[in-house]
Computed example of a mutant assay.
Amino acid sequence: MQIGIRAHDIHIFDNPEKLAISLKEHDFHYVQFAPRVSLSELTHGGTKINFGLGNRVKQAFDKQGIKIAVLGCYINIIDPDLTKREQVLTQFKKYLSLAHSFGTELVATETGSVDPTFRKTPNNFTPIKISETINVIHDLVTTAEKTGTLIGIEPGVNHPIYSLEVTKELLQAIPSPNLQIILDPGSLIMNPDDDPVQILKRGIHDFGERIYAYHIKDYIYHDNHIEITPIGAGQANIESMLQTINAEQPNAYVIADELSANKIEVSLTRLQTMAQRI
């Protein structure tokens, strides 16, 4: 079993050639790539990308045998400031048009918040806000259908698409195969008794055919939220999650998410050991 990583968890920036070499040295075969972070200066924080830059990244990664599985363009698609919202939605559509130049099919985002500071608020979960979010996603899917690309929506507890049930509602409302899900069970933990393995299993059961990739992270639940830990240092049964994915969808994209910067090598070693056992 192979595990991917967010490319920016390897701290080499604005140099795709050196980054690709380092990813190869760490034995990665695919990544999630966010120009906003990995190419911060070259792209003005991810806001300016072009076909030539995409091709440069693709060539560098191809040379090292690395696939960009997910192109990250994480934006606030329901920003209450409609001018800002329109700007970031236009940016996302630009990423869709450029995805193939980066060598990928899918551009991913979460669904944002009515609070631009992303403080927890129940206002994200109202039926009106969920419906509005679905309508915004539908517009993005129309662009994806025209460009021959895919949209990956990542549900999360502080977003309008905040649970497995609402994710099912989204997928039923937009049956297009151009809409896919990035499933991170850790991002759907609402209380200390929630089991990410069971969340994973239910997600696969309910809409597994629409899951494009999985995010995996370890955590402890503290003060009504999760705190990320190095892999193996938290309460998530990471190996059971990997076994579940491998049994249900062999060779699926599995991307280690939010790896602790000061313990990244420890996390990677533990992940790779688990993957080898599977």
Score class of each variant (00 low, 15 high):
4 G>A: 07
6 R>A: 11
7 A>H: 00
7 A>F: 00
9 D>M: 06
13 F>I: 05
17 E>Y: 10
27 D>L: 11
29 H>L: 13
30 Y>E: 09
47 T>Q: 05
49 I>S: 05
53 L>K: 01
53 L>M: 09
54 G>L: 05
59 Q>M: 13
59 Q>S: 10
60 A>N: 14
60 A>D: 07
63 K>P: 13
65 G>P: 10
73 C>Y: 14
73 C>M: 14
75 I>Q: 06
86 E>T: 10
91 Q>M: 09
93 K>E: 04
97 S>C: 02
103 G>H: 06
105 E>S: 15
118 F>L: 13
121 T>K: 11
131 S>A: 11
135 N>H: 07
135 N>C: 07
140 L>I: 07
146 K>G: 03
152 G>F: 03
156 G>Q: 01
161 I>Q: 00
162 Y>I: 09
164 L>H: 00
173 A>S: 13
176 S>C: 15
177 P>N: 15
178 N>Q: 15
180 Q>P: 14
181 I>Y: 04
181 I>N: 08
183 L>T: 02
183 L>A: 04
185 P>G: 05
185 P>D: 12
188 L>R: 03
189 I>C: 00
190 M>Q: 12
194 D>I: 00
200 L>I: 06
200 L>C: 06
201 K>M: 13
205 H>L: 15
210 R>S: 13
220 I>G: 05
224 N>L: 03
224 N>I: 01
226 I>D: 04
228 I>Y: 09
232 G>P: 02
232 G>A: 01
232 G>H: 04
239 E>N: 10
241 M>S: 06
242 L>R: 09
246 N>P: 13
250 P>E: 15
263 K>N: 11
267 S>V: 07
267 S>D: 04
268 L>I: 02
271 L>E: 04
273 T>K: 13
